[in-house]
Write a protein that binds this DNA or RNA. Structure first.
Lengths: 350, 350
DNA sequence: TTCGATTCTGCAATCGATTACGCAAACTGT
DNA sequence: ACAGTTTGCGTAATCGATTGCAGAATCGAA
């Protein structure tokens, strides 16, 4: 180990790239303290020396070790992003929804000079979260989707502050979350179907996930509010694509008078489109389909998928912003995003 | 800042959670050196003390600061994953291909106890890579897709070893890469179309990207080899979905005798399916379509998409494995994965 | 010119771990 | 029982930065 090259004796003459503030201090003819202050812009230091040192740093393309800094300061410079896959062990982290959100989060976190520590976790026991936190590798934590783990999260949030969660805001939660108004999303999606004349509706999604439950509530609200004698049923669909296709196919074989589907994710909606196609039931003529999320893929299905848009970019913004404010010690409120109806060919023929 | 709680005076009595090996050493009645050795399992230490200290650490759920360790050891404990978006400024990191690969890489890297620093970079200047490396925040770097930046990568690879690249292996490259045999992929995709009777083929993809160029070569190989008098043309399609749809639509309006499409990504293929559908040209009867990558979404399009499968999980495995071996100082060879033809409904009716 | 108030800068301790080196205790063999 | 090994552990330097404290330099005022 210790593959440290032989440093040439501290020559005062030609100076090679400085490896640390020590070297740079020597070149500049000042102490390390001064260099540190110059680069950080802290403490009292004359503008002249500050600029001189900064110019040198620039010239040598020198950046102080953030590791050493973090050690001294007592922070890690890393935020953890964790995806708990509670309900479906085999759901993969590459799920397009997670990944889209993650992409935005990564950009925002990087903007602040922090690293991103990505973990995918299948919670076997209630300790998964505290273990992750106590590992001391992160300054804060973003959890994407509480899945069915909101109890655990709640418990941990009571003693660990810098924690924000993507997902539904629940009434009794002690943690801070960012999420869409899922009930409203469910409402507008269903109203859309009803307004197009659908009367026999199905809700595709697993209501044991809190967000989905809310969407289901919105679905029911809409049915109740409509004067029409519309009916609706629920099909708990697995998140795993293969399973989902089976679930949906089986259902469709029975439900032959169905004329509208509200799927709780674009992914499920896509599968529904496929199952419908297999059965030669045309979309949107026979059955209208609307998804949720409005991921990129929604606009590229055949037919293009109507969806309830969640603004994931704004969501990521909010998540990261809240997290850093919590790290700074502020106390902050949860954020709710307003979903937006996006109409495409899967509900309205051109 | 500095929200360090008031430490109680070093009581010898009831011991609270140790914060560092110092504390633990005190509890155990040994020196920090011994604790370090016990926990790391290095150096000469009696089995008895080692186990005793480990038990204590376990009991207090203590883990030594990886930050301090990394500083001392001279490593960062982080690998960078960087996605250069050279050709398409607006291409988003949430592109499903990147994200799928990234997900697998994240898992592997985490397995080794390393962090993942994710950066999306739009290379404005040739310095982008060296800047990233000189920031000293990573022990190694995985680049996903050389895009049109292979010159830059080549130059940097000559002085910076721990660097692996996802993408086509080029003849003159000085860096180590993992990628599919793209030429072969192009070949088998095209042979598949030809074997189904297609004679007027189109290749959809931008050949200025090295991987795509190889696939195009495979496409041409197949045409040349087939005794048939088949013809093929090329349409450079943008990566951005909206643009791509325009490109493809325009092309299809002219190319009305087309009977086979080889798209260089599933994403493009999906767009092609959509454009064909808009024009009431049925797939696979009128036109057969095959994609590349075999992402998860391929099986869920309507009709389900035939594709050339790249085993991204194996690819991620290889990338991470090679990277760590390079970090350890080994010299390693590039890896080429064999692509595999996946036939679905977009080329063969059920 | 001299003294006190300001600025600026350097010294040295510190963050939490690792590890070369050396001393003491426990063996080994004769 | 004594010199020579071997083994187990502690001392202290070190990684590269930050920062409290204090000394030096500068300045203004008397």
């Amino acid at each position: 180990m210790g593959m440290k090259g032989n440093q040439p004796p501290k020559s005062r003459g030609i100076s090679r790239k400085p490896q640390n503030i020590q070297d740079l201090a020597e070149i500049a003819g000042v102490s390390t303290a001064t260099v540190s202050r110059a680069l950080a812009g802290t403490g009292n230091i004359s503008a002249a020396t500050r600029e001189r040192i900064r110019a040198l740093a620039e010239q040598f393309d020198f950046r102080p070790s953030s590791m050493a800094r973090n050690l001294r300061i007592g922070r890690t410079g890393t935020v953890g992003v964790i995806v708990p896959l509670g309900h479906e062990k085999s759901q993969h982290i590459s799920d397009p929804f997670f990944m889209t959100l993650l992409g935005y989060i990564a950009d925002r976190v990087a903007d602040r000079g922090y690293d991103l520590l990505l973990s995918k976790i299948v919670p076997h026991d209630p300790e998964w979260l505290s273990r992750q936190i106590d590992s001391g590798r992160v300054d804060g934590m973003i959890i994407i989707g509480q899945s069915n783990q909101s109890d655990v999260i709640n418990a941990v949030a009571r003693y660990y502050a810098p924690l924000v969660v993507w997902g539904a805001a629940q009434t009794d939660q002690s943690y801070c979350s960012v999420g869409s108004d899922n009930r409203r999303g469910g409402l507008i999606a269903t109203q859309h179907l009803l307004s197009l004349g659908c009367r026999r509706l199905a809700f595709f999604g697993d209501p044991s996930v809190p967000e989905v439950e809310e969407r289901l509530n919105g679905f029911r609200d809409a049915l109740r509010q409509s004067g029409e004698n519309a009916v609706g049923t629920t099909l708990p669909v697995h998140f795993v694509p293969e399973q989902a296709l089976e679930d949906i196919s089986g259902f469709l074989d029975l439900a032959d008078r169905l004329d509208g589907i509200f799927a709780t994710s674009d992914t499920i909606a896509m599968t529904a489109l496929q199952a419908l196609q297999d059965r030669r039931r045309s979309v949107p003529q026979d059955v209208k389909v609307i998804g949720f999320d409005d991921l990129d893929l929604a606009r590229r299905t055949v037919p293009a998928l109507s969806s309830v848009r969640q603004d994931l970019e704004a969501g990521a913004d909010a998540l990261v912003d809240l997290l850093f404010r919590k790290i700074a010690g502020e106390s902050v409120e949860s954020v709710t995003l307003q979903p937006q109806l996006i109409v495409r060919a899967s509900t309205v023929a051109e």
